[in-house]
Write a protein that binds this DNA or RNA. Structure first.
Lengths: 179, 179
DNA sequence: CACATCATGTAAGCCGTTACATGATTCC
DNA sequence: GGAATCATGTAACGGCTTACATGATGTG
């Protein structure tokens, strides 16, 4: 499992609350890893019990308290050890592709509409990633240097989304020709 | 969950055994959906109990018996209903990208070696997909027509793998420059 | 007035992986 | 002799999702 370790990697950058971490999954990191807030809280509990993170409660006026988590030395050690281990090759699982695969069993229009719906969502996702890229490009050189590797993951997200959109257009053309 | 429905889509093409189905996941379908043989057998059991598939035991000389599963009318109905439902957008989860994201915590050489290892695996996967494409292209027009939609999913696999490999090369260059 | 955001969690259940189990044949 | 392929499964565990729960503030 990698969620625990993903959280450690994020906490190694700077301390954060469970809420912050789950919000982070809606940003650039969200492109290649995801978790619901429930799962984040569950894993933070497990990480605390394992001694890999600890937290301080921060009282807030007008808002609920925040538990600010930080990585411990043991956590940092566990993280670097994990980082050095070989990663499993990503297993792609996409229900839309199954629906296209079996698309002859339903009306072409339904399939087209669904692909178009996904196109819109992917376009949104691409726009978000490009906006994050603009933020990166606005940084000065020294700041960029420390973000070199995260930027590579962002670039992958952008190229993957662009590739997807290009393919979806071809898809719609082929299905149109059939009608 | 989509495994049940993926199995229905495959069985809608033609009857197959649990073994056949899990082998299918190692072929072209494996690019966008995966399941271990254990899970396939578990789900076939559940599908049988739900009345969506039924099986006939086929005795074989010198080999264990095969249970040949076929889709029932109820199963076919459940499948088309599922196909018509909107699909969730694919959630990409890639441990390698987390490792690159947090790659500053480890030696550049370790990271490079890991990326290169993945490159080899992706190259293999691409070669396999291209071999399947050659089989498709060797078919006559009528045969191709019935495979139009599965071919689209195959083309996605090819372009996604090519895109990945291109990005990995850029990655290695960037990491090299840092050293 | 309802909905979104901030902020935290528990409980139940399903999905999927890992480990275990069996047994024959074929290939190196 | 050992590994791979064919062919089927069960059991246990852990990961992840869904449903439920609370409560304040700000926005349309």
């Amino acid at each position: 499992m990698s969620l625990k370790h993903s959280l450690l990697v994020m906490l190694a950058e700077h301390p954060a609350s469970g809420y912050d971490l789950s919000q982070h999954f809606k940003g650039s990191v969200g492109f290649f890893w995801n978790a619901s807030h429930q799962q984040v809280y569950q894993q933070l509990k497990a990480l605390t019990e394992a001694g890999w993170v600890r937290f301080n409660t921060e009282a807030q006026a007008d808002k609920p308290d925040r538990k600010i988590y930080e990585i411990t030395d043991e956590g940092r050690q566990a993280m670097t050890q994990w980082l050095r281990e070989p990663a499993e090759v990503n297993k792609y699982k996409d229900a839309l592709l199954i629906k296209i695969y079996g698309g002859d069993h339903i009306e072409a229009e339904v399939l087209q509409a669904e692909i178009q719906r996904h196109q819109q969502l992917h376009q949104k996702s691409l726009a978000k990633l490009k906006a994050i890229e603009q933020e990166y490009l606005a940084l000065n050189r020294d700041q960029q240097k420390t973000m070199h590797l995260p930027y590579l993951t962002l670039k992958y997200g952008i190229s993957a989304e662009e590739n997807w959109l290009q393919w979806a257009n071809q898809c719609l053309e082929v299905i149109n020709e059939k009608t």
